[in-house]
């Protein structure tokens, strides 16, 4: 069996946490097997199939966690299409179109560049280096943010819809494509982008999770045939176990982070990325 059940449990638990924490799940999935001496590489077809299952689980957890928001957003999108306008007071419609506008560039870049970037930056060494870069980006986002963290009142989706412009949504959405490089975190760059356009940490995290749901879900759905096709032979059992573990930790992570960012910053995650990236780089050099 290419991935044992023990490895699947560990990788699944790690995936769920690290996909939503701004620390790069892909980077960790590349670095951990190398650190533990496992014969698993990120370009192995069975490993990609395994990752599809864990990503799908994470997307479903995100969808479930924010299901009320998604319902309101979908109704808002429908309303605006029917009326052929985005009414000024319709924050659900505005947020929905911000998510669409933010998802399109990330989706296109992902579709066109994923394979190339995956093969260029496949090594654990480069993932460790980019983990440090991720740490620097998170530090910079906190340093360059437009407003200090403060307690937020009222409807968070309304705050996001009012604060984020169409151009901001394109910019923040495009940043997600950075996560195609192992070591760069999708939620990290989108949260950082959110801070730069003037969102609070709490709202930036919320916007990042909403933006991540369609991208992670679509990427996983696109590769789902591989899981059920011949490529999934021998890896479906571990993939299912990994997906369940991933779902559990993803749920815990999103619950924790939504509370954490009410009063806290990205700084601890930036410090972790720098320290872990540096330690792994030195370890791989020796």
């Amino acid at each position: 069996m290419p991935i044992s059940y023990g490895q699947a449990i560990l990788l699944g638990l790690l995936q769920g946490f690290s996909e939503l924490f701004p620390v790069s799940s892909l980077g960790h999935s590349v670095i951990l097997p190398r650190l533990l001496g496992w014969n698993i590489h990120q370009n192995d077809s069975y490993f990609i199939t395994f990752l599809v299952a864990t990503h799908l689980a994470t997307a479903l957890v995100l969808l479930g966690f924010f299901w009320r928001d998604w319902l309101r957003i979908l109704r808002g999108l429908g309303r605006s299409l029917r009326d052929r306008e985005i009414a000024e007071d319709d924050t659900d419609a505005k947020l929905g179109w911000l998510l669409v506008v933010g998802t399109i560039p990330a989706g296109i870049l992902g579709l066109l560049l994923e394979h190339k970037l995956r093969s260029i930056f496949a090594s654990a060494q480069s993932a460790a280096l980019f983990l440090m870069v991720n740490g620097v980006l998170l530090f910079l986002a906190e340093a360059l943010r437009r407003r200090a963290p403060q307690p937020q009142h009222g409807d968070p989706d309304g705050r996001i819809a009012r604060r984020v412009s169409w151009r901001d949504a394109v910019g923040v959405g495009t940043l997600q494509a950075g996560a195609l490089i192992p070591g760069i975190s999708r939620s990290g760059v989108t949260m950082g982008g959110g801070l730069l356009v003037g969102l609070s940490n709490e709202d930036a995290a919320r916007f990042a999770f909403l933006l991540a749901t369609p991208i992670i879900g679509a990427a996983a759905a696109l590769k789902l045939p591989e899981l059920f096709g011949s490529q999934g032979n021998g890896v479906r059992g571990p993939a299912l176990v990994g997906a369940i573990c991933s779902a559990v930790t993803a749920y815990l992570a999103v619950r924790f982070l939504m509370r954490f960012f009410e009063t806290n910053r990205l700084t601890p995650f930036a410090a972790y990325c720098l320290a872990a990236g540096l330690a792994c780089t030195l370890y791989f050099l020796v």
């Binding site: 605006s80 052929r84 306008e85 985005i86 669409v100 399109i104 296109i108 579709l111 066109l112 696109l222």
Partner: peptide, 22 residues
């Protein structure tokens, strides 16, 4: 994947036209 990317951008153009033509 090229097809999906092309389809998404095409759809986005049509949605843009839908709103702009109101």
């Amino acid at each position: 994947k090229h097809g999906i990317a092309s389809f998404l951008v095409g759809l986005a153009c049509l949605v843009f036209a839908w709103f702009r033509s109101a």
